[in-house]
Simulated assay, not measured.
Amino acid sequence: MNSILFGHIKMLPYNCNVIVDYLKSQSFYEALRIDYHEVTNNPIIIHYAGKSKPWYSRKNLYADFWWSIVDSISSFSFYIEIIKFRRLIRKRFK
């Protein structure tokens, strides 16, 4: 696929691919010559691809934002399932 699409793609800005666990290391972004503060202050798409998940702890980066989205969802049953899952995870990791 890479050879077929070569020259026909547009790269997204790095704040469209913010991976929370990578933000723990400013040197990761410095090595790529990316403005760390631009990425962290203006995320567009946030990936929880590593161990840091907002449903595990509200202390995780951008967890408050994630929970504000969950709180705004009109489907109350979905919200209840997330709360149950969060409690289950807490019990397992205590």
Rank of each mutant, 00 (worst) to 15 (best):
I73R: 04
V70P: 02
K51Y: 06
S77R: 09
K51S: 11
S27W: 13
C16L: 13
I80G: 06
L5F: 11
V18P: 00
Y48I: 02
N41P: 03
S57P: 13
L61H: 11
I44E: 02
I69G: 01
K24L: 08
I83M: 04
S72I: 07
N17L: 13
N60F: 15
Y48P: 00
T40C: 08
S75W: 07
V18L: 09
F93C: 13
M11E: 08
T40Y: 03
G7W: 05
I34Y: 01
V18Y: 03
Y56C: 10
F76P: 01
D71P: 03
E81F: 07
K91P: 09
K24P: 06
I34H: 01
F28K: 10
C16K: 12
F93D: 13
L32I: 06
S72Q: 05
S27T: 13
E30V: 03
Y62G: 06
S25A: 06
F76R: 12
N60W: 04
Y48L: 04
N42K: 10
D35V: 08
Y36I: 09
I9M: 14
E38R: 12
C16G: 09
E81A: 07
K59L: 09
I4S: 06
R87H: 14
S74A: 08
F6C: 05
N2K: 13
F93W: 07
S52Y: 03
A31F: 15
N41G: 08
R87G: 08
T40S: 06
L12I: 10
N2P: 11
N2V: 14
K91R: 15
I83W: 09
F93S: 10
F28A: 05
I89L: 10
A63L: 08
N42L: 03
Y48T: 02
I45F: 07
I89T: 07
S25R: 15
S75E: 02
S3M: 09
S77K: 10
D21H: 07
D35F: 12
F78R: 03
S72M: 01
S57K: 13
V18T: 06
Y48G: 00
Y14Q: 02
F65V: 07
S27C: 12
R86K: 13
F78H: 08
Y36F: 10
L88V: 09
K84R: 10
R92N: 06
H37E: 03
H47N: 01
Y62L: 04
R33I: 02
W55I: 15
C16N: 12
I46G: 00
L32C: 08
S74K: 08
H47A: 01
S57M: 14
I69T: 05
R58H: 04
V70S: 00
I46V: 02
L23A: 15
K59R: 09
E30Y: 11
K24R: 14
L61W: 14
V18Q: 02
H8M: 00
T40D: 00
I46H: 00
R33A: 05
D35Q: 04
A31R: 15
L12N: 02
N17R: 15
K24I: 07
V18C: 05
Q26N: 01
K91C: 14
F28P: 05
I69E: 03
